[in-house]
Simulated scan of single mutants.
Amino acid sequence: MNPEIIKYTGKIHPANGGEWNEQLRRNLYAYYPSNSLKEAVNLAIKLNRPLLLEGEPGCGKSELARAVFYEFSKQYTNYEWDYRLWNVQSTSKAQDGFYSYDYIGRLQAAQLAKVEIKDDKSDPANPKDYLELGPLGHAFNKYYLDEKENQENPKYRTIVLIDEIDKADTDFPNDLLLALEDQCFEIKDLRPPKWLEANPEAPPIVFITSNQEKELPNAFLRRCLYHYIEFPDNKDDLKKIIQARFKSQPHKLVDKAIERFLELRSEMNDDKEETAKKVSTSELIDWFTVLNDYPPEKVLKKLENERYPFGSTLFKSRQDKSEYGL
């Protein structure tokens, strides 16, 4: 059977000011995708391929997966939605995303069993007790790993975020190729070895982000859909982002702060090389978080007397602070 057709609209948001999500253990805020980004998400779902996202640091690449999770968990309640985050590090290996196996723990339990000391937590005769699934392992777990392992769970669907894949070494993306394409992998440490495969009726939705620190292999790119998230230079779009985060701010203050921010952004665009760090939406949010702690009248006065008050939230180098902060 084909999976149910689902569609990301970008219209279902948490309330202004944010909404605590217990499953993600964080506040979620409204996310306003462009039409081209919504199209990319829906094509990735339709074709059952990962969506590779690039863009300037701080442009909201990682937040997209959470926004999709929020909307789908509200809109498609016939599924039990899960969200799995894989923060890639320089030492990460593809195996980390599938599963890890506690060889030492099983050996210790076996030694304790020989001297008749019971360990209530695990059974050395049961290798599954020492298996821990990674983010992709959970997403591809079509069958339970417990006594119900032969029963399918078609109501369970996962959104996976593989964040900053370009941090890992160059072999990392290639080691994910077949698993992402075939949506299955082998657990070689079980006897007999076991394959975990995604439920074809409820396949995982995979987002991958990159800050373009390394080039990704062509074979990997071929298996992904791609979208570059542009900075929202439109003043109204930035106002929506601020108003989603902060309640009841005077329009005059929001307009003034965003105008000043866009001036800085424009100067940096004119002066900086493509590889340099320009202010993005994350700096705007940090800046406004500080401005929001003061009475609007005081903030407006500071904006009149200083180019960029509380500039430490905007400038990420001594050169930037010296060049733009005075």
Rank of each mutant, 00 (worst) to 15 (best):
I241R: 01
F185Y: 13
E230G: 12
Y226N: 10
E213R: 11
D182R: 15
E201S: 15
K235Q: 14
E230S: 13
S210M: 04
A219M: 07
Q212G: 12
W195T: 15
T209F: 00
V206E: 07
Y226P: 05
Q183I: 02
K235F: 10
L196T: 02
F185G: 05
L225A: 14
L196C: 05
L225N: 12
N234C: 13
C184M: 14
V206S: 12
P217A: 01
N211L: 01
Y228I: 14
A219K: 11
P193V: 01
Q212W: 07
P217W: 00
A198D: 00
Q212C: 12
K214G: 08
I241Q: 08
K239W: 06
P192E: 10
I229T: 08
Y226H: 10
C224M: 05
D233F: 12
R223Y: 02
F231Y: 13
N234V: 10
A202D: 06
C184I: 07
P203A: 05
K240F: 08
P193R: 05
D182P: 12
V206F: 02
P204W: 00
L216E: 00
L225Q: 14
Y228P: 05
A198M: 02
A202V: 04
A198K: 00
N211G: 06
E230V: 14
F207G: 09
K239P: 07
N211T: 00
K194G: 12
P217L: 03
L190M: 09
A198C: 11
D237S: 15
A198N: 01
R222Y: 02
V206P: 05
F220K: 04
P217Q: 04
C184E: 15
A219P: 14
K194Q: 13
S210W: 00
K240T: 05
L216R: 03
P217M: 05
Q183E: 07
L216D: 01
F231P: 04
L196R: 04
L190N: 06
T209M: 06
E201Y: 12
N199Y: 04
L238A: 08
N199K: 10
K239E: 14
E215I: 06
I241P: 08
E186I: 15
P192A: 11
C224A: 09
R191L: 15
Y226W: 09
P200S: 12
L190S: 03
A219H: 02
E213F: 00
R191D: 15
D237I: 08
E230A: 14
K214L: 03
P203N: 13
L216P: 00
I187H: 10
S210T: 00
N234I: 08
H227N: 13
R191Y: 09
L216Q: 00
N199M: 03
N234R: 12
D182K: 14
Q212S: 14
L196N: 03
L190R: 10
L190F: 02
A202S: 15
K240I: 03
D233S: 12
N218V: 13
F185D: 07
F185P: 06
N199W: 04
K235P: 13
P192H: 12
Y226A: 09
K194M: 15
F231R: 03
C224P: 10
P217E: 01
W195R: 15
L196S: 04
Y228D: 08
A219W: 03
R191G: 13
E215K: 14
P203E: 03
K188M: 11
C224S: 08
I241N: 06
D182A: 09
